[in-house]
Design a binder for these strands. Structure first.
Lengths: 359, 359
DNA sequence: TCAACTTGGGATAACGTTTGCGCACTCAAC
DNA sequence: GTTGAGTGCGCAAACGTTATCCCAAGTTGA
């Protein structure tokens, strides 16, 4: 058939019944501004040489049309997708969620989006996620965990994409960020000493967690520096309310030893809550008789105790944000020191720790 | 210059000092298999006509090379990115997180990845997120909230991308999924009636929440159906432990009225926990004297009460997964009924509700 | 024997960007 | 009046896929 036959009756772009309106491309912008696609691209990216008038004309056209560059096309030629993958095994999200929120909000301001990969601790699904991230050409991978001594159920292959570990085990030579548990513990115990406590006990999670050892060390250090003896040994149990509850009842109940602590530094907020409940049921007053300090500043928990809990905030939101910015540096080729960076924790003083009204 | 001049001395692909190893493309696969790129693509996508031997040869080559298709290139030509955007305002994540986890794990099995957009309730940042999703060419947008009667701080523009609302306000004509609060409340109250309770009180969150009204209605309905009168009016307070604690103490304390409930159906687990604590401190026994049922099945909360809490699970993980699959249907052009779909809730019976050992 | 169909596969043009290269100017210096 | 440098901008080739044609060879049916 000849080429010059009449146009078909239905124009090609309009597919009735499908409300899809054709996407505006840089070609449309260029046409409206009366320049070539090349010039339009350069104008919008603030590169290349041209009159300021031309540049402005292109900007105006893009604005008028509501043009949004197609990230896939750009990524293809630039070999960057402006996306990150966030890999996590923490189903419950106690730790991952603030990290993820910090990361995502920090990145959106820089034009980078974050893929959420919920691993569910399932190796097969983690493998699937890793594969998806590879196909989506993420510029970097952030591995977030709930334990600083546990790695992923699958090792991330040493690909060509940079990896940062956050609040998780960090293989030698890699870059990692974890909360400064030593500093957090020191701040908590220092506070207890400063409000006049002398017999400070430490209740915490299982010994196998790296975090418990570090926090116990901070507890000991500060006491020694003040010429005080630790009250007994650090008590390693589990992370539950029940552990705090039982221990408090055992230490203050009818058959308990005469020597009793006047303060508890607890390894997390749940233990602290159990301690407070146990003490309260025995008729003791917190903080008049006994001070209690927790760890995590899990607000919905810490604010609901009676009285509200003094506790250590690990700054996980900021941690996520910091890790994100470090990742952008790595992607841009800036040298980032391998090794583990410890980010500061902050003591949040509420009512459970100060026996007398502060001046 | 003539075309036949000698090759440059440094090959084009090798950039020393940059450990980037060239990505293997479908061209490499095709070359290894001895076919054209076209055939390789068709073989891997299981389309087109060719000998099974050829197809297998291509598959083998891809496997041997560890080939991963470039999702951006594919997306460009197919006009699909195989990504979804998850927009949320729920910073704390109590509700969003299980939904997000369900969505992400459900989607990865179908080769779809999910962008996490943490809105922070900030209109400007939400706008930025929406813009990023447009540039990334997401195939669909899922809006997740923590209140079924609150919309986004910014309205999502009626673009060409389908939108699904989950646990959030759903504009007329759109598709939405929310937990079946009526069913959940009915299950809880039915359970209390079946274990022999007759004077069942209802403590719940603020009246302005749509959820509280629906749950209160379920409470009333079931009681009427069993010929029982509600114990007083539904008590609307706030979602806090403190509200439950104070109310329980007021209803069972020294100056309380003679007529007392034998069970509490609470609007969430925190209120229930406050009730249990308030009752326990007054020397009452749960569940022997009073049964308590919560709502949300926030496990770390519900399992830590003494005794562990009977509560309603809203099935948020499944909700996220369901919404994801509905989204895939919409993207594939299958007709999805507009309107709100209510997904089932499930009663989880623990120890706080059954006064006598069940048979 | 010739048309018509099927089968296996390749050439080539998209998709929407960015970028290397070069062209046509202008302006000054020799 | 020829160089030389600079300026403003466009052509065309990527990037890695998939989709639309098309062709050659084999297979049938009349």
């Amino acid at each position: 058939m000849p080429d010059d036959e009449s146009e078909p009756l239905t124009p090609r772009g309009s597919e009735p019944g499908h409300r899809m309106t054709a996407r505006i491309t840089i070609r449309d912008v260029a046409a409206l501004a009366g320049v070539s696609v090349t010039t339009a691209s350069r104008a919008l990216n603030d590169v290349g040489r041209m009159t300021e008038a031309t540049r402005e004309r292109v900007r105006a056209a893009a604005g008028q049309l509501g043009y949004r560059p197609n990230s896939m096309a750009r990524g293809l030629v630039r070999r960057r997708s402006f996306t990150l993958g966030l890999l996590t095994t923490d189903t419950y999200g106690r730790f991952t969620l603030p990290i993820a929120a910090g990361l995502a909000t920090g990145m959106v301001d820089r034009g980078v989006s974050v893929f959420l990969c919920a691993g569910e601790n399932d190796p097969e699904r983690t493998r699937l996620n890793l594969q998806a991230m590879e196909e989506k050409c993420v510029d970097g991978l952030i591995v977030a965990g709930k334990r600083i001594d546990r790695a992923l159920p699958i090792e991330v292959p040493q690909q060509n994409v940079p990896v940062i570990y956050v609040n998780a085990a960090c293989p030698p030579g890699a870059v990692g960020f974890v909360p400064d548990d030593l500093g957090g513990a020191r701040a908590a115990v220092t506070h207890l000493v400063e409000v006049g406590r002398r017999r400070i006990a430490h209740l915490t999670g299982p010994r196998e967690f790296a975090a418990t050892g570090v926090r116990a060390q901070g507890w000991q250090e500060v006491l020694h520096e003040h010429g005080l003896a630790p009250f007994g040994h650090a008590m390693f149990g589990d992370w539950s309310e029940d552990f705090g509850y039982r221990t408090a009842q055992a230490m203050f109940g009818p058959d308990s030893p005469a020597e009793r602590p006047d303060a508890f530094f607890c390894g997390n907020d749940q233990i602290a809550r159990g301690v407070i409940d146990g003490l309260t049921l025995l008729g003791l007053r917190v903080p008049q008789d006994v001070s209690v300090v927790g760890y995590d500043n899990w607000e919905i928990f810490a604010k609901a105790t009676r009285p509200p809990l003094t506790t250590v905030d690990m700054g996980l939101f900021d941690l996520g944000q910091t890790a994100g910015h470090a990742m952008l540096d790595m992607i841009d080729g800036k040298a980032v020191e391998p090794g583990i960076v410890r980010t500061p924790c902050r003591l949040v003083v509420r009512d459970s720790s100060v026996p007398l009204p502060e001046k």
